[in-house]
Design a protein around this nucleic acid. Structure first.
Lengths: 77, 77
DNA sequence: CTGTAGACTCAGGTCGACT
DNA sequence: TAGTCGACCTGAGTCTACA
């Protein structure tokens, strides 16, 4: 599983767990809604600061987001 | 402290602790030496996959790298 | 609410050369 | 060994619009 896919999967799971729409998340993270869509589908990858922004809104440390993505990648290398 | 600076600081510390030159790190991480230089000085920020590559060579989980950078940012917000 | 597409800007990342 | 410069190319991130 590629990094973008792993990140996208984790992002979608956490966002839904928070009951947030892509639009709401995008708005609060100061990003574009279409970009969140691309990220979740693994078609784009985030930069470091984007990871920080998103994790901030999701209410988890960025390290945790990354940890989940890494774990996801190890499932199906 | 901006994200790029925090990441750069942590990167430089870990790299030196490993006794690696920028060039060696760049070579193994499949990146450019000048880009490592820019990263360490906080003039550029890494993408997600770049964080993964670098942490792999440094022998730490990417989550740990991010964690250290986050901690660095909290020192002087 | 989300996926998608086109067009756009700017920064991520490369490369060669010089200090 | 590391910093820097200039040119270059790709991809991160935006915006509008439509299904």
């Amino acid at each position: 599983m590629r990094p973008e896919e792993a990140f996208g999967k984790v992002l979608r799971e956490l966002r839904r767990k928070r009951g947030l729409s892509q639009e709401k998340l995008a708005l609060e993270a100061d990003l574009d809604r279409t970009f969140i869509s691309l990220l979740e589908r693994g078609l784009r990858q985030p930069s470091f600061s984007t990871i920080l922004e998103i994790s901030k809104i999701l209410g988890v440390p960025a390290a945790h987001l990354v940890e989940l993505a890494e774990a996801e990648m190890k499932k199906a290398p």
